[in-house]
Design a protein around this nucleic acid. Structure first.
Lengths: 240, 240
DNA sequence: CTACTTCTGTCCGCCAGCGTACAGACCTCC
DNA sequence: GGAGGTCTGTACGCTGGCGGACAGAAGTAG
């Protein structure tokens, strides 16, 4: 698919896009469209949240580390959301790392601007609160998923989520890194990918996994994929 | 420990207790102190959130079920929090079940009252937002915990959390039920409790686990216990 | 006291995933 | 083209937890 240069006017972030046009117009000057680069760290556990990101394309992972050095992804943020909810809550520091998993671009806003813009009952605040609830559901579902589902299911889930946020069907990631996202050994990743490859659902290149058959993956993923998707749709569609 | 009848004036819920006195006084008439009974369901996935609960004593679990009938706890709410955050967000339905795990009492408020009271930038809203951020951290830590830690660690963690919310050291629960909270087999619970019993850290009665040695449990639990505790303290203490 | 239910302890074989290790494949840079 | 780093495939033994089952213990109702 040829990459079309986006006109600056349309925003691809679903929250921003849902704003009343005049409100969006008012806010646009306070934001900047910036590229988000692979493995760029948007927030460190030690630092302050000085800026927030509304992704338009690409994916930001929220990752936790344990004392023993093991890491695991605890949430993802794509064009349906915002990386920086704590700012909305008046909090500037959280113990998780936010890092870019898939390249793309995002609308960036200063943290204090967001804070000002959401103190009153504005359309933006309403939308963000709905998003927040869906985000809660996403994480809660992940708690359950990590407790109940096996590596292959979770690996497919992860690939599908990436796919939804990427315009390409190629995911740039090593098995080692993917293992860190899933909280498992590198070798386990290789092992669960093998049968998927054998069935022709995915392709390989060094450091790249490409999805060839979405339906295939959807068949072996756990229900968590749909549950979370539905919940986001419900929240962003305006249902109570 | 003899159970003292609480004077109606003091609230044991940490959020309410942190309100400015006049604000609390204003809100008290809009709340009711109610007992919360073992296994009482505070919110069903199908129903509406008509009321919210600020627990004073006892514990409310947030539980998710999968299509295959397996269940697992995804969060807990004690006297540090509120069961009903989605209401704050203008949402009335969530796909999780809220059920009482440890008896006690809570301050109950109508959902629409909470909504009205938190539309503006009130002290209650500020506190709830801080709580919300800590709650996010709790759930994220649980995602990691379920992905990385073993059953014994998680079981101890669960017992400790109960203990923190209970005035007694006895937790009324069957292995079957505890298994459902942890997302594991009933027999696995029996197995991980055995060594704890052998070390004299816990005692048994049919349907009851009593904690005899906190320190012992803390030694084998994963770091998640402290991480979450610290995060709640940080949020409720007012740090940014 | 008896009958019945429910809860707990235990045991079996089994398998997913772990830790570890090593060799070959791939890419990049010189 | 060659050297060196990095990524991937695979293998081996081990263990934690599973599914399933059953017997005995502890309550409960009659």
């Amino acid at each position: 698919m040829a990459r079309q240069p986006e006109p600056q006017r349309t925003v691809q972030n679903r929250i921003l896009a849902a704003l009343p046009p005049r409100e969006l117009e008012r806010l646009l000057p306070r934001m900047q469209r910036v590229p988000i680069k692979l493995h760029q760290v948007v927030h460190e556990p030690v630092g302050l949240f000085t800026e927030v990101y509304f992704p338009e394309e690409g994916l930001i992972s929220v990752v936790t580390s344990m004392d023993d050095g093991s890491t695991i992804e605890v949430a993802t943020v794509g064009n349906e959301g915002l990386a920086g909810l704590p700012v909305l809550m008046g909090i500037e520091k959280v113990p998780q790392r936010y890092l870019v998993q898939i390249e793309g671009q995002a609308m960036r806003m200063r943290a204090d601007t967001l804070w000002q813009e959401t103190r009153e009952d504005t359309p933006l605040r309403r939308l963000l609160m709905r998003y927040q609830t869906a985000f809660f559901s996403q994480i809660m579902q992940s708690v359950a998923c990590n407790g109940l589902h096996n590596i292959q299911q979770r690996c497919c889930l992860w690939l599908l989520r990436c796919l939804d946020r990427s315009r390409s069907s190629e995911v740039v990631i090593t098995h080692e890194f993917l293992g860190q996202m899933l909280g498992v050994r590198r070798a386990s990743v290789t092992e669960v990918l093998k049968p998927l490859h054998a069935k022709g659902w995915i392709g390989h290149r060094r450091g790249v996994v490409s999805v060839l058959d979405r339906q295939g993956l959807e068949r072996v993923t756990c229900e968590c994929y749909q549950v979370v998707r539905n919940e986001f749709d419900r929240m962003l569609s305006g249902a109570v």
